[in-house]
Structure formats: structure tokens, C-alpha cells
């Protein structure tokens, strides 16, 4: 694929990482690759327990009712020595709606658990295309309802419960927050939307810029949305809970934290979502990290930009949770 549109350059430190990692990933994920990519990934939780043990974090798996009452699983994570009631973080993992498990991004969760003494509930929502919209977002919402209902038992202060997610999980977090508002669900103290996947319409400048380049490019993004929405992708028949960028009323939503890179597909929809929140009178903090590709904080955690991104995010969470 040739570059036809100018785009912001990658940060040099991140580009160096991309140079080394690019031969380990397909440039663009097509629908045929979905089964292969899932096969290549370890089974849910494999490897997670070592990291949990090393961090002094305990894990409790609970089967809960998901969308339509089907059984889904959540893991409750907290510091081993934790007592009393404190902040809670409900987490929706990333993976383009088609991949990943509830331990994707565990490194970031462990930081929150240790730094804020938070209880994390991470949800194993069902994946597209086998379980298309509304399964993923409705499973996520069901997990949030369960978390809020069991707050006392989990040691979570219901006043200090936030939702957080990255990438597809960021979109699901935003969609879950919209459902909670509209259906009188649990009150959220905040929403942490980490480079969220919000818009199925594929019409932004940033999606045109990140085509055949970077991480999670335009083609991969179309694959993810098509798996979730099928033929409905890009039509009028898409709910705001599946694609929160389509929401026209963002009033009454919890304060939001949004971050992304300037060299990723999601840049423009993420910036637009922050602007729409401000327009609706909702407090929001937005960071666009220059030259960042999608997920650079996880792929290149040693870089100065990744450290700055995580520090800014953690600072917002600390202020929001009052820790």
C-alpha cells in the first residue's frame, strides 16, 4: 500500500520499536486472519498468574450472568493484603472486538492495583464475529451491573467506581457508560478511555493517514468493525452503544479521561469525543501524544512518551479516585 496522505511522523523512539516489532505482526488484519491470530495467542490467563503472584495480587474468578443471562466470567483482582473499602476499577480489555482476553493490559492493571489499592474487576466479554453487537457491549454492561451490585462484598466504595478500557475496550467502556446513563444503571465516578475505538464509519482523516502503516491500521480497523457489525458497519443501523462516536447527546456522562497518539487511526474520533463531551458540559481531559502509534504505551513501555502517557493517565485516575 502506498502512502497517499501526509501524516504526522512517528516519534523516533517509537518508530525504532516499530521497526523491530513490525516483522512480528501482519500490517493489516483481514477477517481470514482472526482464527489464526487467536490461535497464536495464549489461552486466557496463561502467564497472567505469574505476573499476579510477582505483583502480590490475588485473583478470584466469578461466573456471572452476561447479556441475555448467559454465563460469562469476570476476574476480581486486588492486593493480597487489602482490607476494607476502597476504589474500584471496572475494566474492559482491548483486542479490536475480535481478540484478546480479560488479562490484556494486565501490566497497567497491576499498576493501578498497587498504586491506588484498587479492586479491579475485569470482564471476559464475548467476541465478534461469533458474538456480534450487541453481545460485547451488553456483556460489559452486565459485568458493570454485577460489580456495582456486589460492591460491598468486593470492598469497593460505590462512590469511587470508575470504568476503564483500552482500544476496543475503550469503545466498550464509553458504550457501557452510555447504557448506564440511559438505563439508570450504576453511577460511575469516571471513564478512562484509552485510545478508544469509537467510530465504525471509517471517514476520519486519521484513518486515511494510518493505512498500511503503524499499528492497528485502517484495514485492521475495518476488519474489527465488520466483525462486530456485519453489513451494518457504516450504515444508519448502528447503535450509539456500539459506536459511541455516533452519540449526539453526551450530557450526564461521568468525567472522562481520553488519550491517544497523533499517528493512529483513532486520533480524530477520540479528539472529537472529547470535544463533544465538553460541548455537553461534561468534564474531560484529553492527551494526544505526538508521534504515538496505537498501543505504544504497552508495546514500548521504556520510551519517554510511554512513561509520560502512563503518568498523565495515572494522575487523572488518582485525582478522580481521591487517592
Amino acid at each position: 500500500m502506498t502512502e497517499t496522505v501526509p501524516r504526522p511522523p512517528f516519534d523516533p523512539e517509537l518508530e525504532a520499536v516499530l521497526t523491530l516489532l513490525s516483522d512480528q505482526m501482519p500490517m493489516s488484519i483481514t477477517p481470514e486472519m482472526i482464527p489464526l491470530m487467536r490461535q497464536a495467542a495464549p489461552a486466557p490467563g496463561v502467564g497472567a498468574d505469574d505476573a499476579l503472584t510477582a505483583a502480590g495480587v490475588v485473583r478470584r474468578d466469578v461466573t456471572i450472568p452476561g447479556h441475555d443471562g448467559d454465563e460469562i466470567e469476570v476476574s476480581v483482582l486486588s492486593r493480597q493484603d487489602r482490607t476494607g473499602v476502597g476504589p474500584g476499577i471496572y475494566y474492559t480489555h482491548g483486542g479490536g472486538m475480535i481478540m484478546g482476553d480479560r488479562f490484556v493490559g494486565l501490566d497497567i492493571l497491576l499498576g493501578w492495583i498497587n498504586d491506588f489499592d484498587a479492586v479491579v474487576v475485569t470482564v471476559e466479554y464475548r467476541l465478534a464475529p461469533e458474538f456480534p453487537d450487541p453481545y460485547p457491549v451488553r456483556d460489559c454492561y452486565a459485568g458493570l451491573v454485577w460489580t456495582a451490585e456486589h460492591a460491598a462484598e468486593l470492598g469497593i466504595d460505590p462512590e469511587r467506581l470508575i470504568i476503564a478500557g483500552g482500544s476496543a475496550g475503550g469503545g466498550l467502556a464509553a458504550g457501557t457508560a452510555l447504557i448506564a446513563r440511559d438505563e439508570g444503571g450504576p453511577a460511575l465516578a469516571g471513564q478512562v478511555l484509552i485510545y478508544p475505538m469509537l467510530d465504525d464509519r471509517d471517514q476520519t482523516v486519521s484513518t486515511a493517514q494510518i493505512d498500511g502503516i503503524g499499528v492497528w491500521d485502517r484495514g485492521s480497523n475495518r476488519t474489527g468493525w465488520s466483525a462486530l457489525l456485519g453489513d451494518r458497519r457504516g450504515t444508519d443501523d448502528v447503535s450509539v452503544y456500539a459506536a459511541p462516536a455516533r452519540a449526539t447527546d453526551l450530557s450526564g456522562l461521568p468525567p472522562a479521561f481520553i488519550d491517544c497518539g497523533s499517528a493512529e487511526v483513532f486520533r480524530d474520533e477520540d479528539v472529537a469525543y472529547a470535544s463533544a463531551l465538553w460541548a455537553a458540559g461534561v468534564q474531560a481531559e484529553l492527551h494526544v501524544w505526538p508521534g504515538g502509534f496505537h498501543g505504544f504505551d504497552i508495546m514500548a513501555p521504556h520510551t519517554v512518551l510511554a512513561k509520560a502517557m502512563r503518568a498523565a493517565r495515572d494522575s487523572w485516575i488518582a485525582r478522580t479516585l481521591g487517592v
Binding site: Q24, M25, A40, G95, H294
Partner: peptide
């Protein structure tokens, strides 16, 4: 997507 490639080690 970060989970596909892991991290630089």
C-alpha cells in the same frame, strides 16, 4: 494491536 505483538523486550 498491542496484544498481537507484545512489547519490545
Amino acid at each position: 494491536m498491542q496484544e498481537l505483538v507484545g512489547r519490545l523486550t
